Amino acid sequence: MPSLLAVYAHPDDESLFSGGVLARNAAEGGRTAVVTATWAEGTHRARELAEALTILGVPEKPRLLGYADSRVPSSAPGSPRLCDAPLDDSVGRLVAHIREFRPEIVVTHDAYGGVTGHEDHVHTHRVTALAVQAAGLERLYPEAGAPWRAGVLYLAAHPHSAIRALREFEEAGEDMWTVPDERITTTVDVRPWLDRKWAAVSAHRSEAQRGAAPGLLATLPAKARERILGTEWYIRQDLMSDTRKGETELTGR
């Protein structure tokens, strides 16, 4: 299995958007890690993230860029909000993780930032798209380590055809940021990993308690959760012209 680095905005995004792919890749022997853009070491959400990754079978500790959640300034005391940080700084921090981990695949939010369109999700997409390019150029961020070119970027998205299932989910109202079905290149059935994925989502207890996505999902029948969480969709973007597709497929060989 390929090495895979997932880059998401908040603790819980990794489990909600890509928990099945992360669990599968790790279980099948692929090096797997997660970078989270917001919340600082020592906070309760960083601890929940570490627990969720353990449940998913990801052996690495969370990698945190250390910025504040745009809606929770106390999430990273003394640090700017992710959306306010100098772009060069945030890209450089992520380049260092890419060069150190050396992934074949990078996964992140799509340009809409997923169905909610959250501003931190959108900005994390921008930072990641720039960082995967910059990481391969030796004259950019030379202090961040030796250059590394990932082969593929996968953008986690939801197609228009998923709207019916999403409407079972109270948070998903009329204004859902979905993409045309033909834009989706990769559809992954993660039902074999759904128990583990749901356990990882549930590990984000503080989000459940405040009524965010993990809590709203917990109110649904198991079959409804399966319809929402049992499939993961991605838009594949090749970063190198000579990338061998069979070796960088999220759906396996």
Rank of each mutant, 00 (worst) to 15 (best):
T124E: 06
A146H: 06
D89I: 13
P103Q: 09
R99P: 06
R102D: 00
D89C: 09
R81E: 03
V107W: 06
R139I: 12
A129K: 12
A111G: 06
P86S: 10
H118Y: 14
E138S: 15
S90T: 15
E138T: 13
C83F: 00
I98D: 03
E119L: 14
R81Y: 00
Y141H: 15
H109E: 07
P103E: 02
G117W: 03
G92D: 08
H123G: 00
A135E: 03
R149C: 05
A144Q: 14
H125I: 06
A131L: 10
H121A: 06
G145R: 14
A146N: 01
H97F: 11
D88G: 08
Y112C: 06
R139T: 15
H121Y: 09
A144G: 04
D88Q: 12
R93C: 01
V106M: 04
Y112G: 08
V91M: 13
S79T: 12
P86N: 10
P147F: 11
G92Q: 08
H121Q: 12
P80C: 06
V106A: 01
R139N: 14
D89Y: 12
E143Y: 03
D84A: 13
G145C: 11
V132D: 02
S90K: 10
A129Y: 15
I105A: 02
G113A: 09
T128P: 01
E100D: 13
F101E: 04
G117V: 01
A134E: 05
G92L: 12
T128R: 08
G136V: 13
R126F: 12
P142F: 02
V127P: 05
P86R: 15
H109C: 10
G92K: 10
V132F: 02
P80D: 10
E119I: 09
G136T: 11
D89F: 13
R102P: 00
A134G: 07
H125Y: 15
G117P: 03
A111H: 11
I98N: 06
Y112F: 14
